[in-house]
Simulated scan of single mutants.
Amino acid sequence: MVNNNNDYWKANIALIIKCLSIWFVVSYLFGIVLVDVLNTVRLGGYKLGFWFAQQGSIYTFVVLVFYYAKSMGKIDKKFNVHEK
């Protein structure tokens, strides 16, 4: 059971790192570091860098919350620790 428990937490931490990495790229890199490069592209009349800084990172965060919940449900079922 200990090995199975370690595998469960490895899968959980890998998912967390994946989600946080995506959020970091969208919110920090796209919204701050690469804003000037992205501002050369327009999305719905707004500069893309501005959009990522103001809206894109929020939308991405909401999508990641639902993705994390769905993925954790799959991981819980895989390791048989889901709610019954």
Results as ranks from 00 to 15, higher is better:
Lys47Ser: 11
Leu34Glu: 08
Gly31Asp: 04
Asn12Ile: 02
Met1Gly: 13
Tyr67Asn: 02
Ile75His: 04
Ser21Arg: 00
Ile16Thr: 11
Tyr68Asp: 01
Leu48Ala: 15
Phe50Leu: 11
Leu20His: 00
Phe52Arg: 04
Leu34Trp: 15
Ser27Arg: 05
Gln54Ile: 12
Val62Leu: 13
Val26Ala: 06
Lys70Val: 05
Phe24Trp: 12
Val41Thr: 13
Gly45Glu: 04
Phe50Trp: 15
Tyr59Val: 03
Tyr68Ala: 11
Lys70Arg: 11
Gly73Arg: 13
Ile22Thr: 08
Val81Gly: 04
Met1Trp: 03
Asp36Phe: 11
Lys10Gly: 07
Phe79Ser: 05
Phe61Asn: 02
Val41Tyr: 14
Leu34Thr: 01
Val26Asn: 02
Gln55Asn: 13
Phe79Leu: 06
Val81Glu: 10
Asn4Trp: 01
Lys84Ala: 13
Lys77Thr: 02
His82Ser: 14
Val81Ala: 09
Asn80Gln: 15
Asn12Arg: 09
Tyr28Ile: 10
Gln55Arg: 14
Asn12Ala: 06
Val35His: 10
Asn6Ile: 09
Ala14Ile: 02
Val2Tyr: 09
Tyr67Ile: 01
Lys47Leu: 08
Asp7Met: 13
Asn5Glu: 07
Val33Ile: 15
Phe61Cys: 08
Ser71Ala: 15
Lys70Pro: 00
Ser27Ile: 00
Lys74Gly: 14
Ala53Tyr: 11
Ile58Glu: 03
Tyr28Val: 11
Asn39Trp: 05
Tyr8Ser: 05
Lys10Gln: 10
Ser57His: 13
Phe30Val: 01
Arg42Leu: 13
Lys74Ala: 09
Asp36Ser: 15
Lys77Val: 00
Leu43Gly: 01
Lys18Gln: 02
Phe52Thr: 01
Lys78Asp: 10
Gly31Lys: 04
Ile17Gly: 01
Lys78Cys: 08
Ala14Met: 06
Leu38Thr: 08
Leu15Ala: 02
Phe50Thr: 14
Arg42Ser: 14
Thr60Glu: 03
Val63Tyr: 07
Val63Phe: 14
Val37Asn: 06
Tyr67Gly: 00
Lys10Ile: 07
Thr40Phe: 12
Val62Glu: 01
Leu43Arg: 01
Lys84Thr: 07
Phe66Lys: 00
Leu48Gln: 10
Trp51Ala: 13
Val35Glu: 12
Ile16Phe: 10
Tyr68Lys: 04
Asp7Trp: 05
Lys70Gly: 11
Ile32Trp: 06
Cys19Met: 12
Asp36Ile: 06
Tyr68Trp: 13
Tyr59Gln: 02
Phe79Thr: 07
Lys47Asn: 12
Gly45Gln: 08
Phe30Pro: 04
Ile32Leu: 14
Ile22Leu: 12
Phe66Val: 12
Trp9Ala: 00
Leu20Thr: 01
Leu15Gln: 01
Ser57Pro: 00
Lys70Ser: 07
Ile16Asn: 02
Lys74Val: 06
Ile22Trp: 03
Glu83Asp: 09
Asn12Met: 08
Lys47Val: 00
Ser57Ile: 00
Lys77Arg: 15
Asn12Val: 06
Ala53Leu: 10
Gly44Asn: 12
Thr40Asn: 12
Leu43Asn: 02
Met1Ile: 03
Ser57Gly: 09
Trp23Lys: 03
Lys10Asp: 07
Gly45Tyr: 08
Lys77Glu: 14
Ile75Thr: 09
His82Gln: 15
Phe66Gly: 11
Leu38Glu: 06
Lys47Met: 11
Tyr28Gly: 00
Phe52Lys: 04
Leu15Met: 09
Val35Gln: 15
Lys18Arg: 08
Gly31Ala: 09
Val62Thr: 07
Thr60Gly: 08
Glu83Thr: 12
Leu20Met: 10
Ile22Glu: 02
Gly73Lys: 14
